[in-house]
Amino acid sequence: MRTTGKIIKYEIRDIARSKFVLFYFVFFLLLTEGLLRFGGGSTKTLISLSNVVLLVIPLMAIIFGAMYLYHSREFTELLLTQPVNRHQLFRGLYLGLAVPLALSYGAGLGLPFLLHGFNAEGDVALLLVMIGSGIFLTFIFTAIAFWISVTYNERVKGLGFSIVLWLFFAVIYDGLVLLVVAWFADYPLEKAVIGFTILNPLDLARILLLLQMDASALMGYTGAVFQRFFGSFWGISIATVALVGWTAIPFWLGLRRFAQKDF
């Protein structure tokens, strides 16, 4: 674990030099500040933010994650000739990227709210859920990106696949679910739809937010089914467990691959 800690330290130093994380922080800071200042009220701001969060975080995490691992191939090779265990190294590389991304997102979103305050009671909880699910998405899509770039040696292939995967989860998947629902409209599809939701981390994060917002009109088909089927408490619990699985499985696949890889 100590080695992992040291690798995280050196990677954070390297990332800090690349300025990307700073840009990421400033982006969320300005966006939140702008919405709070000109959008009127914390509730509206949070609803507007939710859409941005659900699209931008997975995109940034998956692209920057893949790029970073390709970029730090030299660093990886150097460390592998040293008495460093591959599992420790992979954990260090992963946390050294995911933690700064998650922190700059959380801080970028949180700071303006601390300055401006909230104008409805439920907004504090909503903000916390939003930061929490954004952090989940950061860890999930960084893990997926690492898995992809450990699997494909070619940078272009890896980056291309990352973008396609993001597009699939963010846009195509919902379309496919709607298509299935429309096709089999005569059958009871509730359980199948819940299954579809669990298979997409973006849908899970969206449902966590919507269950918290209590805005059933915005919930869409999957959200409505989820709430009716589980109620709020079980809905949130199941979605959270599924998100943990979505973090652990790609990470484990990447780790296994990394441990066997030839350099």
Binding site: R73, E74, L78, V84
Partner: peptide
């Protein structure tokens, strides 16, 4: 690997780090 020193055919090193940084880092890792 504590007892092995390796010199690769073509050394790939982190571009932003200096030799000083790398030496300190490797020492710290050990």
């Amino acid at each position: 690997r504590e007892d092995i020193g390796y010199m690769p055919q073509i050394g790939h090193y982190p571009e932003n780090l200096s030799l000083n940084d790398v030496m300190t880092m490797l020492q710290d890792l050990r």
